[in-house]
Design a protein around this nucleic acid. Sequence first.
DNA 1: CTCGTAATAT
DNA 2: CATATTACGA
Length: 392
Amino acid sequence: MELSLDTSLVFIPKTISDFLAQLSTMEDSSQRSSELDAYVKRLEDEMRKIEVFKRELPLCMLLLKDAIERLKERVMQCKKMEDRPVIEEFIPLKGNLDENGGGVLGKENSDKKNWMSSAQLWSTSLNIFEYSKHDPESGLRMRNEEDDRSVPENSIEPSNNRAMGRTFVPFKEQYESGFTGTCLKDDKEVSQVPSLSLMTPLMSEALDASTNTNIKSNNNCRGGSGSGLAGQLKLQNKPQQQSQQQQPFRKQRRCWSPELHRRFIESLQQLGGTQVATPKQIRELMQVDGLTNDEVKSHLQKYRLHVRKLPASSAAKGNGIWMPLDHSADHSKANNSQSGSPQGPLLPGEFAKGRSTTGGESDNSREAEEDEKSDGQSWKGGLLHNNQGGDV
DNA sequence: CTCGTAATAT
DNA sequence: CATATTACGA
């Protein structure tokens, strides 16, 4: 449905040569140059857009830059002698400009154009976060189904199976099948929300170990981006000789989507607060496929920190604390099949916190744990302008 | 091993 | 600076 772009206003020539040719047919030279200008501007706009991905799309950048440059030359020429027919064959940009990483070799680059359209690029408040209000679990990869497909052949990291073999990340690109949310038997509206899926980090990427230039190509959250890995590359060069001291690849960063975070929060609450929940429990409760303990642990850490930092959230009104779990309008669902107490009193809150861990502080500020803003993306986004502490 | 936290990387 | 990953001690 993304084809409803308003391309009506601006025509999109098939090729730049096309464009130039068309341009040359124009009589009015001023129109010509303005057309040219507009086109250049559009090119520049787009280049700005993909600027973010310049690492992933170096060639695109190149092409774009080239095109812009040349067109600008045209503009110059145009402006100078306004009567010269501006035809000239342009360059490459012919029919198919597919050069996705390492050559997908015609396997199935058919949808390669989709990944962009489905991804909301250019962050700028596009959408990512607003559906967090009442969104269904749009695209989580639940692990209910245990659909762990076997690791593709190019898994470059056999030795380091964290979580003992159950957390390996499926490398399948998920932008096409998207979330395997279908596992939710409970009709949790497995909507076909475009984009928004659990981004699998796909840690191992084809990377040139010899030159140590690791291609960190797809690191954006949801774009599976290229990741052709259709099995055509001969990236079997798995350097195991230098396995001793080097671990050149850091795991791909996991992006905590609002969905994920939401689940995280819920699990957290069900477990009784940030302080009593343990990463493993949380992870198990979340039932998100591919999520590792460490990731949860890390997230927990961050979460705890933030929660500690800004304790009072909405104090202005006597608007006490609203239990952060109610938000969604209606979960009309029985309950999770977790433990023995279905639909029990959720939100046990946290009372006993005899955590005599390292500090032994028991006097400290009260429990500020459940101040989550109920919806994803909370601690930093919502409201951080309530400084009653005073200090700046 | 898991958990918590610090160090470190992006 | 924020966030995620890794390292390390308990």
